[in-house]
Design a protein around this nucleic acid. Structure first.
Lengths: 366, 366
DNA sequence: TTGTATGCGTTATCAG
DNA sequence: CTGATAACGCATACAA
């Protein structure tokens, strides 16, 4: 194209205002504008205020694309989760977005749908979008990690949360499931339970394996034997919880406490107990895991383990930002392990006084 | 700076590979590379495959920032929601992300925290990020809409979902709350209820106003009178539902059906009925609104209205993409009204046969 | 069919 | 304290 004069469109007609427009208007150079807007020390106060006023007048919005392109650093973070549904992931994403936004970053969110191939595409999309860092909770079907090596080799900060790859070589934020199971089972022991059953989940998933281990640890601590008939393996559904309860209640010596690896399963057990006229917590105390929303609306309310979703999100962002700032300098990977919180409610509390007043459920908002 | 030769860093050491690198390697121009990668017709097949192979070898990822800057059109969409929690918004966001990703877009998600000022900042951040379009569900505290005018005047496509500004002048996707209330109340009538009460929500919120109106419509249809004692105004909490139920059960002539504007409130009423030995649905049938997750795990399960969260997300993206493609050409704003779905469950079904087999609750996944 | 040159909006470098 | 200018990586109008 033959070099012609700039189009000279008047600002009013343009869709957006650039620094060049402001510079022309004020009769100064773009450099001055750029510096004034980023509060550079070399610009005089009166010039600064003039520029700022004009920027406001014309409703100037910096083009972060251009800035990022020039600086090689964007203000975007990427998140990859299996899906945005249920209680857990939305809460973590909530925590992430809140923390990121406070630090001046925006987040791009991707779903892998538990599909490794999709996850790989997500990574490429985020690389393409030139994000400053990536946070991932692995898909269930991910077995190869080359797409993440690619991220690392580009020097892009990467933090796993909740579902992480094993090992000391990655940055990760996870919950201590084993400890959660431990304190939950300890609590049952403290309530006087001596025959404690466990609703276990699929043992090929780490979270359920660890929860079972915590349960075993607690029994060992007080020298109680592990009775096979008190250990039932399920897929953590409500129905399987009920079925397990039927099995246990038919035993000559039924359990007086149940630690479930999940809330839905605990609920099923509790409902079955009610159907059979078995009192909870007096005849059998029950605890769940995950702090699902429904655990506060059942009668009795269900004792459970909170997974610190929001803290997980915050910690993930904090770690990622640290990596971004330390960019270039060597950084030994870090794993942050969050401590689960036992929420004691009525389903396990044999004390005379129950938890003080049922918490008013939030209004159904939308 | 005196114009010097390019640094000539070998590709291997660079953090990312650019078209220029590929061009140098193949001894062709960037134009050729660019065209080959975007499958331009003017490039020969053998050249194309050569370029593609090299791109794969060097793991070339296009820089979408640069592309967007050049073309003035990014592949990013912005979402603004009050928060990412509960059932509704995560589900809609899920639908949005899925549809957007299918169309080759990524989404940036922002939370307003029900704060108008924050919402305004969200808009500016998205403008700055040069998104191709914006989807918004309004914050509760938003009363001025200038920040959205700004979006429109920039020619940026804008679609509201669920919580929209009134009027024919905006693009919006909403649920027909009034119809939902109507079919729910009709269903109660069909079950033989003749004294139907309503748990109403705050009437300054459109959704609750419309639900109340649908309830009134249904009564009018069959010539039933509106009895003031059967209309209770609440904030839609569980406790208020229980309180209302106490009030109604103390009446000389209690209602035989209840349409609640929200699931939590319906739950409270149902639990109070159980405490007082009143049978649901036989003595009093109950329906809720929103299809909260817990409505399938209570006993009895709760009849409710599904808000089509995912469809709402999909429809929102479809409309937005239409606007983006029609960019420039005049486009008369459109409002899409989704039809709510009545989910008939045990709390309202007086038929001999109940809903076939309780649906197995999903495992607590994370 | 391929190459050359230019600009998108911003910032960094250098020179005043 | 301020200005001129060259990039960042890509896409296109135009020339060949």
């Amino acid at each position: 194209m033959a070099p012609r004069k700039k189009p000279e469109t008047p600002p009013a007609a343009r869709t957006s205002v650039s620094m060049a427009d402001l510079a022309r208007e004020l009769g100064v150079s773009m450099t001055t504008i750029s510096r004034a807007l980023s509060d550079h020390y070399s610009i005089g106060p009166e010039m600064k205020s003039k520029v700022l006023k004009l920027a406001k007048k014309y409703n100037y919005q910096p083009n972060r694309l251009a800035s990022a392109l020039r600086k090689g650093k964007s203000k975007l973070l990427g998140i990859i989760v299996p899906y945005i549904e249920g209680r857990f992931f939305p809460s973590v994403v909530h925590g992430i977005e809140t923390a990121a936004s406070r630090a001046g970053y925006n987040v791009i969110i991707c779903q892998s749908n538990e599909d490794a191939a999709q996850e790989r595409r997500n990574v490429e999309a985020l690389l393409s979008a030139q994000v400053a860092g990536i946070m991932v909770s692995l898909s269930r079907t991910t077995t190869s990690y080359q797409h993440f090596d690619k991220v690392q080799s580009r020097g892009l900060p990467l933090v796993f949360f909740d579902r992480s790859v094993e090992g000391e070589n990655v940055n990760a934020v996870v919950l201590n499931d084993q400890e959660g199971a431990l304190i939950s089972t300890r609590h049952l022991l403290q309530q006087g339970c001596r025959r404690i059953a466990h609703l276990a989940g699929p043992q090929h998933l780490n979270i359920y394996k660890n929860r079972r281990q915590g349960y075993l640890d607690a029994l060992r601590e007080v020298g109680l034997p592990v009775e096979e008939e008190l250990l039932v393996y399920t897929d953590m559904t409500q129905d399987e919880g009920a079925a397990a309860m039927r099995h246990w209640l038919a035993l000559p010596n039924p359990p007086d406490g149940i630690f479930s690896g999940g809330d839905y399963c605990a609920l099923g057990a509790m409902q079955e107990a009610a159907r059979q006229g078995v009192r909870v917590p007096d005849d059998v105390a029950i605890t769940g895991f995950s702090n699902e929303a429904f655990t506060v609306i059942t009668e009795p309310t269900i004792t459970t383990i909170d997974q610190r979703c929001e803290e997980m999100g915050q910690a993930t962002v904090r770690l990622l930002l640290e990596l971004i700032e330390a960019s270039g300098t060597p950084f030994t990977p870090r794993q942050i392990v969050l401590r689960p919180e036992l929420l004691i409610r009525d389903s396990s509390l044999r004390d005379a006084r129950k938890t003080a007043g049922r918490r008013a459920a939030k209004a159904a908002t939308r």
